[in-house]
Design a binder for these strands. Sequence first.
DNA 1: GTAGGGATGGTCT
DNA 2: GACCATCCCTACA
Length: 285
Amino acid sequence: MAGRKRKLLPSAEDGGCSSECKPAERNMDHREQSHYFSFRGPQGRLGTEFFHQSCIHLAKAFLGKVLCRRCADGSELRGRIVETEAYLGGEDKASHSAGGKRTERNTAMFMKPGTIYVYPIYGIYLCMNVSSEGEGAAVLLRSLEPLKGQPTMRHLRTARRKEGARLLKDKELCNGPSKLCQALNIPRSFDRRDLASDPEVWLEGDPDSGSDSTQPQDIVCAPRVGIQSHGEWAEKPWRFYLRGHPCVSVVNKEAERLSLPGNVMKRWSQSEVQSDAGQLHIKQT
DNA sequence: GTAGGGATGGTCT
DNA sequence: GACCATCCCTACA
């Protein structure tokens, strides 16, 4: 099979990104602040107790939380989780651990809640899951809203793209499970690490919590993506995302109609997203 | 903007 | 040898 030539990601194996973080890019400037929301700073690392939830509860609880990545040079990359999928293991035939099947690859799914499961997909991409309560259960992280370190994320994502390709917009940096692994430089070697205690990757509370934390009615429940071959299990509404958020990878309008929003005080509307030289601005209603 | 098609190689049977 | 929890590019509306 004649393949297209692509540049390899230089530091994908070592877990560090010092070679990717140019000094000028490490300086915080206005471009590194989220244009979607105000970023109020860390709310503290989420510990082991947070991950002790059932898979579906944890998948919903992840929404709004901030995934943080400390690079080898000390700089930080941050993104708010806006889309997840629950894979329950056991009866869930779409799960890598269906039927309790345990292999070298999926061992992390059977480890303690909060364990990172990184696996390769389609040969060239990686996906990141976090184990939950339940035998073989894990939550797939599908999309993030970039909050900090967008220039570095863009550099990491561009490394695999064709030379001369157009500049990626902020909302395109992490809007997919493999894209977020690229943008945050999550390597395969992070597999089986503990998200509650690892020094290089961790989870923090929603920086916007307090006045406008994620409300249940903001969450859309939809069938999971890319598992059509698994029959009835493909229909289970175990994908969760923030309604109207521009960083969601796949919008399901039918599912949005079915999950009525009710009295949503804060929503994100595509029509109010304005593009400005690759950056996005969004007004909240 | 969206749909369609091709790429890619690890994992599992 | 087939499958695959994806991504990117191109063409077209």
